[in-house]
């Protein structure tokens, strides 16, 4: 965790404040997928906020809603004083270049028919960059070198690169517009572990050098711990727990967070952790359980859990947890 980021957290208003984000998909016939329900969080300037959860928890949809690749059902997203969700498509186009996304799959995220130069050029067009050829060429070279590739790679096609290198090209494309905010949607999940480490180092390096603000979506807790200043834990479209990563990792309060941490391998044979094994699968988001959505798999669930939706309660040091029994379980 960077000290600068922690300071700026307190110093100024968050770059992005999401409130009550809800995303439902109508399947027809009265069936509705509750992908995200009432999600609120802040992304401070210059910080990396991690969004974790298992498959189907709504973390990817959250990222896509924020940059309006899917239109959110309700909620607000104040970005630098403007609600992104209330902008018309035309106005949104002006904001697009300030928000970028990096995708999970390094293979399908680059158009196979375009050279690397053409891919980055498209982003430079969006940025309104100088049209002069020489300036473009130089900038493309700079961007490629910034992400650890070489300028002469510009004339190649995506299929000539490895997965890690392709992900770097994705970064170069995102950085070409000089965005204020980047959604990184599982950017290393599809890579080999050795390559993951290189790309993670690149992200950290770039974040510190360029002062990037990032929402880092991942199911890999170790990766999030390494990279993120703050962590949000999602389950079935709702936030279970959030807080500064140190606090959350050292003292998880929500049974779901504990279960997730228990399943994550720890490279230390002497360290003991509470073993909590989750039974069953994540329920269908078409028919989410009443009350606390986690109760069907929670080892500590009681009858009261089905009755009320637990609100997010502060448990000190910026940590918040949505569990009616967090006092007893602490």
């Amino acid at each position: 965790m960077s000290l600068a980021a922690a300071e700026s957290t307190q110093a100024c208003a968050p770059l992005l404040r999401v409130e009550g984000l809800t995303q439902r998909f109508n399947l027809g016939g009265g069936r509705v997928v509750h992908a995200i329900e009432d999600v609120s969080f802040d992304v401070p300037r210059g910080a990396i906020v991690g969004l974790v959860g298992e498959s189907g928890s709504g973390k990817t949809t959250t990222g896509r809603s924020l940059i309006r690749l899917v239109e959110p059902t309700s909620g607000t997203a104040m970005f630098d004083g403007v609600d992104l969700f209330s902008l018309s498509p035309r106005e949104m186009r002006q904001y697009r270049r300030r928000l970028q996304i990096i995708f999970q799959d390094p293979y399908s995220s680059l158009n196979p028919r375009l050279t690397v130069a053409a891919i980055i050029n498209e982003a430079l067009d969006a940025r309104g960059f100088d049209k002069a050829r020489a300036a473009r060429k130089q900038r493309i070279g700079e961007l490629l070198e910034m992400v650890g590739l070489r300028a002469e790679h510009a004339q190649r096609y995506p299929h000539e690169f490895s997965g890690g290198q392709r992900q770097r090209i994705g970064f170069a494309r995102a950085l070409a517009v000089e965005p204020d905010f980047i959604v990184a949607d599982e950017p290393v999940s599809a890579l080999d572990v050795s390559v993951q480490a290189q790309v993670l180092n690149l992200i950290r390096d770039l974040q510190q050098r360029l002062g990037l603000t990032m929402l880092f979506i991942s199911h890999d807790l170790a990766v999030v711990e390494y990279l993120c200043d703050e962590v949000i834990v999602m389950y079935l479209g709702r936030i279970m727990e959030k807080g500064p990563s140190q606090a959350l990792y050292s003292n998880p309060r929500h049974p779901y967070t504990r279960a997730l941490l228990a399943t994550a391998p720890v490279p230390d044979p002497t360290r003991k952790r509470e073993r909590v094994l989750l039974k069953g699968d994540i329920p269908s988001p078409i028919n989410p359980p009443s009350g606390c959505v986690f109760r069907t798999r929670c080892p500590h669930a009681i009858e009261a859990c089905a009755a009320t939706l637990p609100p997010l309660e502060a448990v000190g040091a910026g940590q918040q947890v949505a569990c009616i029994r967090h006092h007893e379980l602490a």
Binding site: R97, L99, R113, D125, G170
Partner: peptide, 24 residues
């Protein structure tokens, strides 16, 4: 995702249709 990336950049739809869809 490469079409979504173009959308995220604010590339106009006709350009996406020709450059990204039609080419492929």
């Amino acid at each position: 995702p490469y079409v979504e990336a173009a959308k995220a950049l604010g590339v106009p739809t006709p350009v996406i249709l020709v450059r990204h869809v039609l080419r492929n």
